[in-house]
Nucleic acid binder design. Structure first.
Length: 352
DNA sequence: AATTCGGGGTA
DNA sequence: TACCCAGAATT
């Protein structure tokens, strides 16, 4: 640690960093892994409740490995990026049943785990096992791009290599875990994306972006995200106290979660009962019943998609015949299944 | 190398 | 709205 940046960073961390989180200082690799997966692309405040929920329900990796899929997905419900949950389960079972319950303890072996990439492997390796691997997350990209005045796009392979090398070069090898924690805290508290606290920043004198007045132009991203609009018509089919649902299985949003009978239209939304009936005829030939309610239009803004949808309530006169993907389940069993936020938000405010 | 995977907070 | 968040996997 013969460089000025790291010396100042570690000193700032020791004297001025009061950020506290339940996994800070944690040495149990299972807990660290769990927290890191939950926090992938997720703000600390958002992930916090989920972390406690998981630790409560699954205190050890064995508990998680033995849990039924649905119970784990229910725990993850609402957090987003559901492949993380699938990979979490897969990795827990690998560790418990195929690796004698031993958590992998080297960067290389951690990197092989499903759902563990360069960031998470470095985080676990440094926090749990004191190994010298620098983390590279959104905070680190931002701090280093500003400090060194680098405009290489961070969402390019070149940028990733460059910043990985930089971070690794700055790492305090005598306490890599503390250094990694410190640089992320520093990015979250001081070197924020918007309105960074440059006036109280200990790195400001040597920060290229601050000295030359382009803090707000960094870091650079090359790709602009583009959003597509989707139109979902959900049919809430009820027969007595039973509802028809299915699990989403395609490579698409909300994979592994459940949903009502869905008609996705290319053209837009319609609340016209005749059109809704015709659409339902195509999805579920032979259904007999009545539309009782058509909801208002609901919207959800995702990173890459804008979802618009409405909910059509249908009372069936008889159970559906087989030959479709949906299954019938009692109302009270719905509570144990994981649904997308788009649906749970509707259920919170509307009786079915 | 480019896309896609959620959901929510913030300016 | 647009951007961002303790990224990773797939195409």
């Amino acid at each position: 640690m013969q460089n000025n940046f790291s010396t100042l960073l570690m000193n700032w961390n020791r004297t001025r960093n009061e950020r506290e989180m339940p996994w800070k200082g944690e040495k149990n690799p299972y807990r660290i892994w769990l927290s890191e997966v939950i926090l992938q692309q997720t703000r600390v405040e958002q992930g916090l409740a989920y972390y406690h929920r998981f630790i409560d329900a699954f205190p050890t990796v064995q508990d998680l490995a033995l849990a039924p899929d649905e119970k784990v997905f229910k725990c993850w419900e609402g957090l987003g990026y559901y492949s993380r949950c699938r990979n979490l389960l897969s990795t827990a079972r690998y560790i418990a049943f195929e690796n004698n319950g031993n958590f992998p303890s080297t960067y290389e072996s951690l990197l092989k785990l499903k759902g563990v990439g360069a960031y998470t492997a470095a985080a676990i390796a440094s926090f749990a096992f004191d190994q010298p691997f620098a983390v590279l997350d959104g905070n680190v990209f931002r701090v280093l791009s500003r400090y060194f005045g680098i405009n290489t796009p961070i969402d390019s392979p070149e940028g990733k290599k460059l910043f990985t090398r930089l971070a690794q070069g700055l790492l305090d090898f005598s306490s890599p875990g503390t250094f990694n924690q410190a640089i992320m805290d520093f990015g979250a508290i001081i070197c924020k994306p918007k309105q960074p606290l440059c006036s109280e920043c200990v790195q400001a004198p040597d920060c290229q972006a601050f000295r030359h007045g382009f803090v707000n132009q960094l870091p650079v991203k090359s790709k602009a995200i583009q959003k597509k609009k989707r139109h979902f018509h959900f049919f809430i089919l009820r027969y007595k106290d039973n509802y028809y649902i299915r699990q989403r299985v395609n490579a698409d949003i909300w994979k592994d979660l459940h949903e009502w009978v869905l008609w996705e239209s290319e053209s837009g939304l319609t609340a016209d009962p005749k059109k809704l009936k015709r659409a339902l005829d195509k999805l579920i030939p032979g259904w007999k019943g009545n539309i009782t309610t058509v909801s208002a239009v609901h919207r959800q803004q995702l990173t890459h998609q804008t979802i618009e949808g409405l909910f059509t309530h249908v009372d069936l006169e008889k159970p559906l015949e087989k030959s479709h993907a949906y299954r019938s389940i009692p109302k009270k069993a719905l509570a144990d299944l994981a649904f997308p936020r788009f649906i749970t938000r509707y259920l919170e405010k509307h009786a079915i």
